[in-house]
């Protein structure tokens, strides 16, 4: 990995963290419901810098956010980590199998889907232990996730195009810092 990439990963992780924190400020009707704004950065990292970078960004974001909120290695962290990993692994797999089939929006949808599926599965394993409520909530969660995924994907798409256009400037800034 090039030195420059490390800077970029660090910068993107910082953005992801910021979005993660920002999102927790938005009031939600149901507490565990999340838009997953940080996924915008994950997708951006994935498209621009590749799978390993996106994985790094996810790991850094989940670990540091949990340390900030004091839930490191707690059950919430497990859910967050599981969701993040499943999401990035699924995106990577889909991109590897069929490159060019999906743009950022498609990847975001895949990411959201697997994020939800893994969280449902982990919630079933760790807390609920009953399959009925999990199955019951699954379609609702997937539907919300799909809509949020679309929004995130479009945002990521805009961001990527923006970065590519004015890329020099941002890259320079990153290097300069």
């Amino acid at each position: 990995m090039q030195q420059q990439d490390k800077y970029r990963i660090a910068l993107l992780s910082a953005y992801a963290l910021a979005l993660h924190g920002f999102e927790s400020l938005i009031p939600m009707p149901i507490p565990w419901l999340r838009i997953g704004l940080a996924n915008i950065i994950t997708i951006t990292a994935f498209i621009l810098l590749g799978f390993r970078a996106a994985l790094m960004v996810t790991l850094v974001r989940v670990v540091i956010a949990s340390i900030f909120t004091g839930s490191f290695l707690g059950p919430g962290f497990m859910l967050s980590m599981g969701g993040g990993l499943a999401s990035i692994l699924a995106m990577g797999a889909v991109f590897y199998v069929a490159p060019g089939l999906f743009g950022p929006v498609g990847l975001s949808l895949i990411g959201a889907l697997f994020h939800n599926l893994s969280q449902l599965f982990l919630a079933y394993l760790l807390f609920i232990r009953k399959i009925e409520p999990v199955l019951f909530i699954a379609p609702v969660l997937i539907m919300i996730g799909t809509i949020a995924g679309l929004v995130n994907g479009l945002a990521a798409d805009l961001l990527i195009k923006g970065l590519k256009n004015g890329g020099d400037k941002i890259q320079n800034t990153a290097e300069w810092k």
């Binding site: 069929a98 060019g100 089939l101 999906f102 743009g103 929006v105 498609g106 949808l109 895949i110 889907l113 699954a138 379609p139 609702v140 997937i142 539907m143 799909t146 809509i147 995924g149 679309l150 994907g153 798409d157």
Partner: peptide, 20 residues
């Protein structure tokens, strides 16, 4: 957006909608 993106989006919406 690619055709794949759109198909996937509609598919997921449909599946979750039917699922509900």
């Amino acid at each position: 957006t690619t055709a794949g993106d759109r198909v996937l989006f509609i598919f997921l919406l449909l599946v979750s909608f039917i699922g509900i």
